[in-house]
Design a protein around this nucleic acid. Structure first.
Length: 156
DNA sequence: GCCAACGTTGGC
DNA sequence: GCCAACGTTGGC
């Protein structure tokens, strides 16, 4: 099946691309937005993800990750001590799902949001039009354009 | 740190 | 089922 492309946001001071590089892979837990969840449920192993830092100046695409495990229930929703605990979620019908992603590469040159907004060919990106969605689809040509703006090439 | 935009909750 | 109140995200 053809690789699909996505963008996932993380607050730079909470879980950065450097944290992902150090960990190798991670559970993308804590997503509590239905649209973002639905997007994760669409993901397949091998899909590629633009890694985006929000809450830094400027916010920017900073690297690439890869989906290594398809959607499964987010365990944090069932843990009362966890900040993402959801008392309304039923173990037999979990409300929140997540995927695992692994580190692929960090860009030498970040691609800031203002640059993305200036680029006419990227004006349809969800990133530009819906600033609040933290897991979103990206078109192949958009993915490739961001990579070229970063001066990066995808390693096989 | 502020606050606009957006999503969710819950009273009616 | 509407919508006011509230909470959160994320750009600036």
């Amino acid at each position: 099946m053809a690789t699909r492309y996505w963008l996932m946001k993380s607050e730079a001071d909470v879980y950065s691309i450097d944290d992902l590089r150090k960990d190798g892979r991670t559970m993308w837990d804590g997503i509590r937005n239905y649209q973002a969840r639905n997007n994760m449920q669409e993901m397949a192993e091998g899909d590629l993800v633009l890694y985006y830092h929000s809450r830094q100046t400027p916010s920017a695409v900073v690297g690439v990750a890869r989906v290594v495990r398809e959607a499964y229930p987010d365990p944090t929703q069932f843990d009362p001590k966890n900040r993402y605990f959801d008392e309304k979620s039923d173990e037999d019908d979990p409300r929140w799902w997540l995927v695992d992603v692994e580190f692929v590469q960090k860009f030498d040159r970040q691609v800031g949001l203002p640059e993305v907004k200036e680029m006419k060919t990227l004006s349809d990106m969800v990133l530009v039009n819906n600033s609040r969605l933290s897991v979103q689809p990206v078109q192949k040509k958009e993915f490739e354009r961001i990579l070229s703006m970063a001066g990066a090439e995808l390693e096989a």
